[in-house]
């Protein structure tokens, strides 16, 4: 389990990185935290002839607010997100979900941009991004574009990024007031990729008895993170009540189409997606109320 031969390039600036990527996109692979790429190299499942190491690009690191949105630059480590008071305050769903990513030494090294670009359908960050209707900033020599999460994640390990484009930041828009979020997942062991995970976002009307908007974003139930649009639509205007969440669970089960593997069957995932949706919606609604009280 030793990596195959490759050339290694550590650019000093994003511009340098993009220049090389533009020239050699076919044979080059950007190296972010390496927590997914290096295992693939060690198993010789990935064979880039050139690695472009982004770890020296400090300009790609940092968390800030921009026009109310939380901006996390691509090379920001998971641990930095986990420790950030800004994230906890502004995007609690991200703060909650990030703790489910691997383990401490993985989060030390793993990056937000790397996780999003890798697009594992059972990974937490893509699910959070989908739940919050976030956007991915892609940068190449040709320019920069913002791609909504919905359009960015295409399929298993496949995104809308062109070979010469780098994920340079992700944006999590702010949520309306009286909104609560919750992240729940079921994994075989602590820190494993989720069998099923869900991010729920629930906004309540002024009297806190009615749902004005709800979102459900699932991981582990398809080739990409999946929004339960039918359930979301059905939740709008419904009362804050256990029956509402239960009905949403049923809708979720009808609209998702998970696959099975050695760890859990498709039927299990479908059912548990409903269970987690029900629980996450209730929790998010509760938090929406609590948040308003504070």
């Amino acid at each position: 389990m030793k990596p195959p031969r490759f050339r290694y390039y550590a650019p000093h600036s994003l511009e340098e990185a993009l220049a090389v990527l533009a020239e050699m996109a076919d044979e080059a692979k950007p190296l972010a935290g390496g927590q997914s790429l290096i295992p693939m190299l060690n198993m010789r499942l990935a064979r880039p002839s050139l690695l472009i190491d982004l770890n020296g690009l400090h300009e790609l690191s940092g968390i800030e607010l921009d026009n109310g949105a939380l901006v996390v630059r691509a090379m920001t480590r998971h641990r930095a997100v986990e420790r950030s008071p800004l994230v906890a305050e502004h995007t609690p769903l991200l703060a909650e979900a990030i703790r489910w990513v691997g383990h401490l030494p993985i989060r030390t090294r793993g990056t937000v941009g790397g996780s999003v670009a890798h697009a594992d359908p059972a990974a937490e960050l893509p699910g959070v991004l989908m739940a919050l209707d976030g956007t991915v900033q892609l940068t190449s020599r040709r320019g920069q574009r913002l791609v909504p999460a919905e359009d960015f994640f295409i399929d298993l390990l496949t995104t809308a990024a062109e070979p010469d484009e780098l994920v340079t930041e992700v944006r999590f828009p702010s949520l309306p007031s009286r909104t609560g979020t919750a992240w729940l997942e079921v994994a075989r062991r602590h820190g494993d990729y989720a069998l099923v995970g869900v991010g729920a976002v629930v906004s309540l009307a002024e009297d806190f008895t009615t749902v004005t908007e709800a979102r459900l974003s699932f991981i582990g139930v398809g080739g990409r993170p999946v929004r339960a649009r039918l359930a979301e639509a059905a939740l709008r205007g419904q009362p804050v009540a256990a029956e509402t969440w239960r009905a949403a669970a049923a809708t979720v089960r009808g609209e998702i189409d998970p696959a099975g593997d050695i760890h859990a069957s498709a039927e299990y995932r479908r059912y548990v997606a409903g269970v987690l949706a029900e629980r996450a919606l209730a929790l998010a609604a509760e938090r929406a109320r609590e948040g308003a009280r504070q």
Binding site: R188, L195, H263, A264, Y268, Y271, V272
Partner: peptide, 10 residues
Amino acid sequence: DPDQLWRMTH
């Protein structure tokens, strides 16, 4: 495993 326990109960 979780899948088996879930099947037994559902």
